[in-house]
Write a protein that binds this DNA or RNA. Sequence first.
DNA 1: CCGCCGCCGGTCATCGTTGTAGAGTGCGCC
DNA 2: GGCGCACTCTACAACGATGACCGGCGGCGG
Lengths: 341, 341
Amino acid sequence: MRDVALLARVSNKTVSNVVNAHPHVHPATRARVQQAIDELGYRPNLSARGLRSGRTGVIGLAVPELRQPYFAELADAVIAAAEARNLSVILGQAGADRAHEMNVLAHGLRQTDGLLFSPERLGTEDRDLLHDVEYPLVMLGERIFGGPTDHVTMHNVAGARAAVEHLLGLGRRRIAVVGAHPDHRTGQLRPSDLRVQGYREALVAAGLPLDAGLERAVAPWHPENGADATRELLASGVEFDGIFALNDTLGIGILRALGEAGCRVPDDVAVIGFDNIANGQFTLPSLSSVDPGREEIAETAVAMLVERIESGTRTPQTPRLHKAAFHIVARESTGGSGRRA
Amino acid sequence: MRDVALLARVSNKTVSNVVNAHPHVHPATRARVQQAIDELGYRPNLSARGLRSGRTGVIGLAVPELRQPYFAELADAVIAAAEARNLSVILGQAGADRAHEMNVLAHGLRQTDGLLFSPERLGTEDRDLLHDVEYPLVMLGERIFGGPTDHVTMHNVAGARAAVEHLLGLGRRRIAVVGAHPDHRTGQLRPSDLRVQGYREALVAAGLPLDAGLERAVAPWHPENGADATRELLASGVEFDGIFALNDTLGIGILRALGEAGCRVPDDVAVIGFDNIANGQFTLPSLSSVDPGREEIAETAVAMLVERIESGTRTPQTPRLHKAAFHIVARESTGGSGRRA
DNA sequence: CCGCCGCCGGTCATCGTTGTAGAGTGCGCC
DNA sequence: GGCGCACTCTACAACGATGACCGGCGGCGG
C-alpha cells in the first residue's frame, strides 16, 4: 500500500479510500491511484484489514456432514449467496456429535464474522445455550425452535400436507408414512413430527381415518432404514397404495424395497419424498418430492446474518422466523412427467 | 492478552509463549497464565496473529460444484483432514466456468495460506499458468498433468482396468464402455481417456477384440446422458453383457435405462461404475464401483499443502505426483453381496 | 573461581490497514 | 466582503499478536 501511495503521490489513506470506494475522492486522484494499484498488482492484506476493522469478511457454515446430499446442496447455495455479497465461507462439520456441536456453538468458527448453524444433535431443549452466544448467529433447520436468534427453515407441516394431498389427488386412499420418530409426539418440533402432523392433517381434511399401522418409525433417515421399514410394511399385510417418505433419502430406499418386492411404482404404490435432492431425478422411477426452497433458505439466511453483522447486534430485538416457499415436484413415482424437473 | 498478562503477572510475550506452546516456559508460570486465560475466557485474535505471522491457518479448497456428490464427499474428507491439523477450510466453487477458474488460480482464495484446486475447465494446455502462481498450491483431479506443482489424483488407468477385469472375471466377454470423450485420443490425459485406455488394456490382455460399437461417447457425465447413451446402445443392436460406466453418476443413469428396457442386472448385463459415491449403495440394484481412495487423496493433499506452506517454498523442487490406492467394490450390479459396502 | 550455555522471561518494534481529527481550498449566500 | 460548508486529502495512532533481541540466573566443566 505504501508503494502504491508513493507511486500515485498520495497518502496511504487515500489509497485505502480508493480501494474502499470512499465517496470523497477526486476522480483524477482515484484514477491515478487505481493505475498505480494495477501497475504494482497491489492486493489489500485481509488479515490487516480484519485486525483494524474487526471484520474478516468470512462467515461460517456449520452442518452435520457434507456427505449428506441435502447439506451439500445447502452449502452450495450458501456459498453462492455469500459470494454474491463478496463474503467467503468457512465450512465446519460437526459430525452429528453433540459435544462437537456445543463447541462450535460456544465460539463460532474461527476467523469468522458470524455463523449459520444447522445442528443435528442439539434440540429445542438446548435453546437456552443460544442466549449465551456472543457473535451474530442465524439458525437453520428444524432442530431448535423458539430460540432468541433469527431462524430460517422450511414449511414442514404445510409441505408435508401438500405432499399427501398430491397423493390423494391421484386417488390414493391408503397412504403410509415412513420416517416418523420412534417416539412421535405431536407437540414436538422435530421435522419428523411436523411432517407427520402435516400427513395427518391432510388425511383428516380428506375425511380419511388415521391408521397407526400406516405410520412407520425410522431412525436415522438412511436409505437402508427406509428400505427395511418398507419391507416390514409389506410383510405386515397392511394395505396401502401410496407412501409419503419424510425425506428423499428414505424415499430412495423405499423405491428400492418396492422394486425388490415386485411392486410397480406408481401403478401399485405412488411414492413422494421431501427435500428434492438432485439425486431423486435419477432413481428408477424418478422420485416426486417437496422442494423446500433451498435457494431461498440460503439467500435469506445469508441476508439475515449480514444484517446482524452490519448492525452489530448479536441478538435481534425480535427474533425472526422465516419459512421458505415450497412446491411439489411431480416425477414418475407419482405419475408425473418424469425426465426433468 | 494484556489483561491476561496483568492477571498472571507476566509480560504480554509470555502469554503468547504459553498460547503457542513455546518450549521454554516454566511449568508454574505456564499454569498461572493458563489459569488467567481460562478465568478471563481469553481467545487469541486470529486476524492479528495472521497479520503478524503471515499465516492465517486457513486453506482454500476450490471445486467446480459442491452439488456434485463426488466433490461434496471430497470436501467432507478434506475438511476432516484439515481439522485434524487445526486448520480451517474456505470453500470456493468455480462453477465449471473457465474465467472463474482462472481467477481463482490467479490469486487463490482470499485469506488463505494455500489452495487445493480441482479444476474442471482448465486443462493440461493451461499448465503454464501454474508457473505464475505465487502461493502454495496442490492440484487435484485429472484435468492438468505435468504441471510444476504437487498433484494428487487417482489411478485412472489401473482402476479402470481392474473394473473391466472384474467384469471379465464374471465371464462377461462383450463389455461396453459409456462415457468416452467425444473426440477420444489415447495420448490425452483426461480422465475419460485414461479410463478408456484401462478398459482397452484389460480387453487386449484378455485376448478380446476392441469393438468401436461398444465405446459410447458421453459428455458431460450426467445421469440422463448415461441413460441416453444406453438407450442408443440397446437400439444399435450391438450385443453386450457388461457395461463399464466411466463414473457412478453415469452408472446410475445406465441402471435406469437398462431397467426401463427390461434388462436384468446383473443377469443380462453386469454394470460397474467409478468413484464409489455413497449413492451407489442405494440404487436398485446397488452399483458396483471402483473406490478411488478419496480419504487418501484428501489426507495426502492436505499433508502436501501443509508441507509447502511450512517450508515456505511455493513450487516444489521436484513436483510430486501421488496416486491413491484404489479397490473394487462389488455390489449387486455385478452379482456382489449387495446390502452394505 | 571463571566463563559459557541453557533456561526463562522481558522490551520493543512491527505486520498492513483504517478511524479520527483536522488542514487547506473553493464556492455560494447573506 | 466575510462566513460557513462541502469537498479533498493528510498525519497519526491505533487494532492484537509475535519475532528479534537482550538480560538475569543457575549449573557445570575446566
